[in-house]
């Protein structure tokens, strides 16, 4: 729904502007802009260049150097010596469950907020945005205490519930905007055709808003996959170690000034970062549009 008329007009205006752009930009301008772009690309890509070269280098060092003999040795070692397979499984399970929980909670809440008719409705929206801006680093100590009190430390349930909650305000708000674009008469028609509100939501509204559900699912998964602060305070058990925790631990014990095993850390980093980047870049348009909408909203 979101890629409705707004996008077409934007595309149209793009064409118009391009067509109207003056010919013959001066070569100095072109040179200057390109020089800036080269600097930008170097600045932003060089750290990744190091990550990927080091991961395939049997004795990687802290500086960029192309491995004499590229090898998968580092990857083999993180699985055999550091139980990284377990961490991957844990992460997939936690991020996947978080995603499912978030999609359900967000679909229900976003739809309800979109359809609710109440004088103070805008205040709910503000409250949600307020929560969204609350820094986790400020509440991590209470969250630690709460998780301990509720027995949520060192448990999948704790990880899943907390990660589902972290992204919830933003996702609810995002999804509400998607639902606002689904005309009400569609679900009303379904009610009249004999459906309950819940089934009309599932059969009619959700399929129509499936782009939004896709964005929410993707963002929920990525956020839970990448998040590390809550993992650090919630998990001590080796059995529950996730990818970011494995990476963090290896970084603490292997990296630094003592025993530098950059190759191992880099290999873990690659497996930690690549799914995020791949998923994000594949769905870039949708994700970026969602984020832009988030800033524009209200």
């Amino acid at each position: 729904m979101v890629e409705g008329p707004g996008v077409t007009t934007r595309a149209a205006s793009r064409v118009a502007r391009t067509a109207a752009a003056p010919r013959g930009a001066s070569w100095i301008e072109a040179l200057a802009v390109h020089a800036v772009f080269v600097l930008v690309v170097v600045f932003f890509l060089v750290p990744f260049l190091w990550l990927f070269t080091a991961a395939f280098d049997a004795d990687a060092v802290a500086y960029i150097r192309f491995p004499a003999a590229p090898t998968l040795n580092n990857f083999v070692r993180i699985f055999t010596e550091h139980d990284f397979g377990r961490a991957l499984l844990n992460s997939v399970f936690v991020a996947g469950s978080t995603m499912v929980l978030d999609v359900i909670a967000v679909a229900l809440a976003g739809y309800s907020l979109s359809r609710l008719e109440w004088r103070f409705k805008s205040w709910i929206t503000y409250a949600v945005l307020l929560l969204q801006t609350m820094p986790l680093s400020a509440t991590m100590v209470p969250i630690y205490g709460l998780a301990r009190a509720l027995g949520l430390r060192n448990s999948y349930a704790g990880l899943i519930l907390i990660h589902a909650a972290i992204e919830l305000p933003f996702l609810v708000w995002l999804m509400k905007n998607f639902f606002d674009n689904v005309p009400r008469y569609l679900e009303e028609a379904a009610w009249l055709d004999g459906r309950s509100k819940l089934r009309a939501l599932a059969e009619i509204v959700l399929p129509v808003a499936r782009n939004g559900i896709g964005v929410v699912a993707g963002l929920a998964f990525l956020a839970a996959w990448a998040e590390v602060l809550m993992m650090i305070i919630l998990i001590d058990s080796q059995d529950l170690k996730t990818v970011p925790l494995a990476f963090y631990e290896t970084l603490r014990t292997q990296g630094g000034y003592t025993e530098v095993q950059y190759g191992l850390v880099a290999a873990m980093g690659v497996l930690y970062a690549v799914p995020v980047m791949a998923l994000f870049l594949m769905t870039r348009r949708m994700m970026v549009r969602g984020l832009v909408a988030s800033s524009r909203g209200l």
Binding site: Y185, L186, E188, A189, A190, W191, L192, V208
Partner: peptide
């Protein structure tokens, strides 16, 4: 009564056809 229990059919001004269903599925949905 809830709308679903009233046994009335409404043709909306905008028609309210379900965009993700074929015409056949739209008609047989009720």
């Amino acid at each position: 009564l809830e709308p679903k229990d009233r046994d009335v059919a409404l043709v909306f001004q905008s028609y309210a056809l379900y965009p993700h269903m074929s015409v056949r599925d739209n008609i047989q949905y009720p």
